[in-house]
């Protein structure tokens, strides 16, 4: 059997204790939540860590809570609960749909929303055993000096592969990190860094505790589209989340489109709202604008040969999935998934 490396396991009983441990061990420690991302990566010896800080015994960072106009989701809430929560399904359908399509059923029972946000980037040259990576001569992300995706590349381009990230981005979510030195809340857009080695701005010692969604009081439409080979288990070859808010006259008030499984960062497409704003539901203008958004996304998204799946094909699917997901959001038929 492929074995886990040895490590010191910490099981703090309070967030404070967890933060203290993380502050003490910093980069030599990894946070363990659901384990569905961390354990395979540990087995592949992608991290040099001596300490694993398990959040299994922490009370109170699970579940859903309304705080004013915000819905606050505990970071340790299992994805299966996010997918089936009626409030999320109603007010943040893109998130519910994205959560429902993460990996397979067992992963969604174990994996948490916070864990999916903090998912490590993925690449065909890194998510392999130590033996395999050594035979390759390693790569930029770990143990090596060359990139096998971009010839001569000096920056790791492993792909953000978290289904929920684009959904949270379209929803304007913010994230709460707690550390030994205090609490920090950041908009989710600010989390991402264009570096596949670590695509997050969270500092060592910070633990994600809450995901905050501002709920809208006007009509909200959302959907998630996922391209993958199989109907289950697989990471996205392309993920696309959309939000369309309508005003009382059924005209687009605001809209957002975000994609994942491209490069190191999930991408929020700029300029979508300008293309769609003011257009009426069911109008030809809206149809045309949706196509324009699809083409805009196509222009902005350049998948690489990082994750498995032909990059040209994935790029070609960008406008298809953007268009289909926008339509599904308006029609209430999401998610866009081949099954």
């Amino acid at each position: 059997m492929l074995r886990l490396p040895t490590f010191q396991l910490h099981e703090p009983a309070s967030l404070k204790e967890a933060c203290a441990l993380f502050a003490e061990h910093g980069a030599a420690a990894k946070i363990l939540a659901g384990g569905t991302d961390l354990l395979p990566n540990l087995k592949h010896e992608i991290y040099d860590v001596d300490h694993v800080i398990s959040l299994a015994k922490l009370p109170g960072i699970t579940g859903f809570e309304m705080q004013g106009h915000d819905l606050v989701i505990g970071a340790l809430t299992p994805l299966a609960q996010v997918a089936t929560n009626p409030n999320i399904q109603k007010h943040a359908p893109a998130l519910a749909q994205a959560a429902s399509l993460v990996a397979g059923p067992q992963h969604r029972q174990m994996g948490t929303l916070g864990g999916n946000v903090m998912l490590d980037t993925r690449c065909q040259w890194i998510n392999q055993s130590y033996f395999w990576r050594e035979a390759l001569g390693f790569c930029l992300k770990k143990d090596g000096t060359v990139c096998h995706v971009v010839e001569g590349g000096k920056k790791c381009v492993a792909a953000a592969s978290n289904d929920t990230a684009p959904a949270l981005m379209t929803l304007g979510a913010s994230l709460t990190f707690v550390s030994a030195t205090g609490t920090r809340e950041i908009p989710i857009e600010d989390l991402w860094v264009a570096d596949g080695i670590n695509n997050k701005s969270a500092r060592p010692g910070e633990i994600l505790t809450e995901i905050r969604l501002p709920l809208r009081d006007h009509t909200h439409h959302g959907a998630y589209g996922k391209l993958r080979e199989r109907g289950s288990i697989d990471f996205p070859l392309l993920g696309c989340a959309v939000r369309i808010d309508l005003d009382d006259a059924d005209c687009v008030r605001d809209a957002a489109v975000s994609l994942v499984a491209l490069q190191a960062r999930p991408l929020l497409i700029k300029g979508v709202d300008a293309l769609l704003q003011g257009l009426k539901l069911g109008s030809t203008e809206l149809d045309q604008a949706i196509e324009a958004v699809a083409q805009l996304a196509h222009k902005k998204c350049k998948p690489l040969d990082n994750i498995p799946g032909d990059k040209d094909y994935r790029r070609r699917m960008v406008p298809v999935y953007v268009r289909r997901t926008l339509r599904a959001a308006l029609d209430g038929t999401g998610p866009v998934h081949h099954i």
Binding site: G104, Q124, Q128, W132, L136, R230, I233, D234, P308, I339
Partner: peptide
């Protein structure tokens, strides 16, 4: 191109699930 198996796992060698 390196002579390495392109994905020696049941994640990357995709055998069908009940949905496929």
């Amino acid at each position: 191109r390196f002579g390495l198996h392109s994905g020696p796992s049941l994640l990357d060698y995709r055998i069908p699930t009940s949905l496929d």
